[in-house]
Structures are given as C-alpha cells and as structure tokens.
Amino acid sequence: MRSGALRIANVTFALLLCPVAAWGWGDDGHKIVAVIAANNLTPAASSQVAEILGASAADKRAIAYAMEAASILPDTEFREEDKSTAPWHFIDICLQDHRADVAARCPEGKCVTGKIDEYSKRLKEIRYDHWGAKGDLAFLIHFVGDIHQPLHAANDADRGGNCVPVDSHSRETNLHATWDTTVVRRLEYSIDSGRPETTAHKLEQIYAAEKGADSWIAPDDIAWESNQVARTDIYGALQIPLEPCQPTANVCVNPAGHPIELDSSYLEHADTLAGHQLAKAGFRLASLLNEIWTQPAAPTHATGNSAPAEVPSATTVDSQIVFVGNRRSKIYAWPGCGSYDRMAPANRVVFQSRETAEQNGYRAARNCP
C-alpha cells in the first residue's frame, strides 16, 4: 500500500503529464475506419453519405475521401467550437465493473455509447441538431472509431491511460497517446507506406473473413468488448495495478507509480491488436450506416446545415474542398497532396477555400497535383 504522501505526489505528477482531452486513434486511425466503412456501404447508404458530405455518388473514391475528412472534424473543429463535446468520445468503465454496470457509466447519455445511439437516430429520422447533417454524420463516424479504441472504454483512475507515463522511445509520453498515435503509425508503416488509405485496404483484405461476423451490435456491447481488450491486453499485459473505481472523481493517478516500459514485443502485439480493432470498427460502421439508410437519397433530400466535404483532387471546384493548413509552416494542402496526411493534429487549421487560406498568409504545398 502506498503512503498518503506518495499517492499525492503520484497524482500531482500524473496531472502534469496527462492532456485535457483524449484523441481516439488520432487522425490516421479514424481515416482508416472511414475508408474501410466507405468500401463496404450498400448503394443506398453510399448515395445518402455522398449527398450529405457533398461527394459524387458515382465516385467511390470521392465518398471515401469525404468520409475521411468528416471523421476527424470532431477532433479538429467541433471540440474547439464546443468543449462540452469532449466527454462524448469515451465511456469510463472501471476495470472492476461487470457488463450490467455499463449503462450506468453513461450518465444522461453524454458519453460515446449514448452519442452513437443519438446520432444514429438523428440521421435515420432526418432530425439533425445544430451541427447539421454533415456534423451529425461526422460525429457518428468518429464515435464508432472511438469506441473501438480500448482505452476509450476503460478507467483505472488514470483517465484511460492518459495519466500513465511511458518509456517507449517514441514522442508520445503517455499510454493513451501511444495507443492513439504511435501504435497506429507503426501499424501503417509495417503494412505499407504509412498512408491511411493503403493501410485501410490492406486491413480489409487481412480481415475479410470476419466481415460477415462484424455486423452492428449495441454500443454498450461494443464498449464492454473494448473494455475486456483493455483489461487483458493493456492493463493486464503491462501488469498495471488495479485502482479503486472512481469514474466520476476528478483524479489522475498513475497506478504503476512509475513510467511503463513498452518494449518492441509489446508494441508489435499492440500493432496487430489495433489493426484488428480498426478493421472491426470499419466493418461495423458500414453495417450501421447500411441499417440507417435502406433507400438511396432523393435528389431533393434535405441535409440541414451540411457543408461540402473534401474530395480527391484539386481539379474539383475549390468550394468543394476543405483545405488544411499547417500553423507552423504556413503551407496549405488538399486531398491528393503528399503532405496532406502528414500534418500533426496540433498544427492543423482548416480553410474552406484557397482564397481564405492565402488571405491568412498560407501558400499552397508544392507537392500538390
């Protein structure tokens, strides 16, 4: 048993280390999920998604790019616009909990399971909130990715691993960030060139035999499944001690009391596990969207406050592209540019047109088509 002084010091140290918000899978993980889902939509669901996101219904690649762009909006834009959305990205299921406890861990539906149910219903009923059709779909795509990240459904008084410092010879300083970003980037480079699109296609091939079994199930069941993965393959595998269950307490403890060593063997296992979770999320997201939309979009289908989304290349009309700038380099890019997918989330700023980007002092990347 730790002394009171050691526990206080441990909490203080962890608070200095842990970020305010958790970023499920990072941009690349969410894009991988979106691409896999786009590849597995029925024609009816595909046309509805294309209508909402402003992509061509006849161009599967354009729909995939549009879903990629939408998948990261809850982290890159919506969270800054409304900080009350931050708790929507996870559910704090204690490591001591039982399946029957899951529903109680989502008070007032303001967690990832509750919001998946809410936005599924909004899209099906064409009853959007102030984010509009595009925003509501973006949230749903993003949250299905989040709920498959094991540390978004587990809590050991450590904010889903945010308060556990790690020593893994990577730039990420805590366990949650390692799973969000480092593990996914390692997976991408082990599979192919490090691009979300190619990684998505490869994962789809690797886990093709599981597609039929990965149909949509209740969000609470998925959260419980992810929690079990966290228990065995993260907390158990790393021998992190169990802390008292206090999901509503404002604490940030490192249960281990010291930085966790993540050796190459553990990270290789984590890469494989993350790939499986991402593939499962993509297949399930497609299954959910296919359930929501069984009829194709009518030409006059209302999309609320939806706005145009990203499309594959700069040959498309500028107003249909979301341009992403790098705050540090003052360079902007669009889908198809080599630098587009490599911008760090913290450096991203989104513009709706070339003119807006250039008025703000940004120039176009030289590696853009």
Rank of each mutant, 00 (worst) to 15 (best):
M1R: 14
I8L: 13
A9N: 11
N10G: 14
V11I: 15
T12V: 14
L16E: 10
L17P: 03
W23D: 15
G26W: 03
D28R: 13
I32R: 09
V35E: 06
V35M: 02
I36P: 04
A37D: 00
A38C: 00
Q48T: 01
A57Y: 01
A64Y: 04
Y65L: 07
S71D: 03
L73S: 08
T76V: 10
E77P: 03
D82Y: 09
S84C: 05
P87N: 01
Q96W: 06
D101G: 10
V102R: 10
R105Q: 10
P107L: 12
C111P: 02
T113C: 06
G114R: 03
I116A: 01
Y119R: 04
S120P: 02
K121W: 05
R122Y: 00
K124G: 03
W131P: 00
A133N: 02
H142Y: 07
H142N: 11
H142P: 05
F143E: 09
F143C: 04
V144C: 07
V144F: 02
G145A: 15
G145V: 03
A154E: 08
D156V: 07
R159K: 11
S168I: 07
S170D: 12
T181Q: 12
T182H: 07
V184F: 06
E188H: 08
I191R: 11
D192A: 15
R195Q: 11
E197A: 12
E197N: 12
K202S: 13
I206Q: 14
A209S: 14
D214I: 04
I217L: 09
A223T: 14
E225N: 14
E225D: 14
D233I: 00
I234P: 07
Y235Q: 04
A237F: 07
P241N: 08
G257Q: 07
H258R: 14
Y266I: 11
Y266M: 07
L267E: 14
T272N: 12
A274M: 09
H276D: 14
L278R: 10
L278K: 08
G282M: 06
F283N: 05
S287T: 02
I292F: 01
P299V: 04
A307M: 13
A307E: 14
A309W: 04
E310D: 15
S313F: 12
T315P: 01
S319Y: 12
Q320D: 12
V322E: 12
V322G: 09
V324I: 13
V324L: 11
V324C: 13
G325W: 04
R327D: 07
R327H: 06
I331M: 11
Y332F: 11
Y332S: 09
G338E: 07
R342W: 08
M343C: 09
A346S: 14
V350K: 13
S353V: 05
S353N: 06
T356A: 15
E358T: 02
N360G: 09
Y362R: 01
C368K: 00
